[in-house]
Design a protein around this nucleic acid. Structure first.
Lengths: 238, 238
DNA sequence: TGATGTGAACCCATTCACAGCC
DNA sequence: GGCTGTGAATGGGTTCACATCA
């Protein structure tokens, strides 16, 4: 269908196209929904249904899925198991990713012990901390190592994703260490902006920022109420 | 400037314009940087400098800030303290927001005890749980209440922001309870998509989704390496 | 018939580039 | 001269609408 039949295909590479970032961000969401559907013994789903479950527009869902290939059946919909597999494969979730957590404090411990990680194929290869007192304790089934061993750990275990779980004031140096150790992607839980080379991928998890965004919309909401009241009374005056 | 001079202005409302969502999301980021600058006794900043610190383009920074009004000085830059104040005001952070946490498990406790909340004006008005055994214990300086009291708490304390910190399978019903109690915004820590009325604002914090996004880009990176190697060897063959 | 897959249209966000002001 | 503020240009993402096919 999308392979031109007059050309010789040596071997289909895993990822043919580059998927737009906006779509990549939604793929894990679809994946989760498909997992739930599988648990509910649902084997087929239409873009309309999936859109409702994902809180998206059906056309957007179809376009997102079309980046993976033409895996739907016209007039029918998508096979849940097959789509699940394709999304997993596209996201690289058919392999297991070793990750390293920097920081063995409250947050680092909580993340290391969080079962959702290994369930989804993210294995805590190491937890490191700069505090020698913490080295040796066990977090997430792993002995805490000293941060100086980071390059060694990253190289020997092939780690490419690092999680920053240190206080804000140490986050930048933690990030620098991760990059120097050879990491390619960082998930940052510290409430600071990291200054990093442009080829490093970063995602941020930041409760304070999220709440401040919500705060804006709640203020708009209360302003709207106030304005409504005001203009109502104004119209009475007028 | 934007107020037509031939119309009578009764009173300038707090928020004149509606700010594009993309810009709203970045305002808390600028705010944080300005806070850091204040701590460093820096009183002036240009859009270029701010852009570097925020990891953004200078034109974008200027446009974002222009939504607040014309608070810069041409040829000079922005006064840090004044800009700080204006962003805070625009985000509604000059008042204190009571919030309610649903779920008094590990996550709920951690969030309730997190000092960063009250530091930024988010006061934990209540922590609720459906487990009567948890009711009465103290989290974040507040006695845990039963979830049945949610409507009462929300009304009496004027809570408009709720945080969902319950296991995935209970998140939807927790959200429904929050909405029925009169909440307007939700910060969702549970790894599920919530089905909610469109006038409710939701933000999501989800480590698994973030890691899966990073996984994609790491896979692309390793594919790129593999392809480079392959095409190199191919060119040798050719 | 009914749902996918996709060009085209639309809309929002980003970036450019420069007028305006300090 | 330097930096802001902003129209205009660009680019990406979303939605429409329909040809296409099971």
């Amino acid at each position: 269908m999308n392979a031109r039949s007059n050309s010789v295909e040596v071997m289909t590479p895993v990822s043919r196209r580059r998927i737009p970032e906006a779509a990549v961000i939604r793929l894990p969401l679809y994946l989760r929904i498909l997992n739930d559907l599988t648990a509910d013994n649902c084997t087929q789903i239409s873009s309309d249904q999936l859109a409702v479950l994902a809180g998206q527009n059906a056309a957007k869902v179809r376009k997102d899925l079309s980046y993976l290939g033409s895996y739907g059946t016209r007039g029918v919909g998508y096979d849940v198991a097959y789509l699940l597999y394709q999304i997993q494969r596209e996201l690289g979730l058919n392999k297991s990713w070793p990750i390293v957590i920097v920081g063995a404090g409250n947050l680092g411990q909580a993340l290391g012990n969080y079962g959702g990680l290994s369930e989804r194929g993210f294995v805590v290869a190491a937890v490191v901390d700069s505090d020698s007192a913490k080295v040796g304790s066990v977090v997430g089934g792993v002995r805490v190592s000293h941060v100086d061993d980071l390059p060694l750990i990253v190289q020997s275990k092939g780690v490419s994703i690092g999680i920053i779980a240190v206080p804000a004031q140490h986050a930048q140096s933690a990030a620098d260490l991760l990059v120097r150790a050879g990491i390619g992607s960082i998930l940052n839980f510290a409430p600071v902006m990291l200054n990093l080379p442009s080829d490093i991928h970063v995602r941020k998890v930041d409760m304070a920022l999220e709440l401040q965004i919500l705060s804006y919309y709640e203020q708009v909401r209360s302003d709207a109420r106030a304005t409504t009241v005001t203009s109502a009374s104004e119209s009475v005056i007028a």
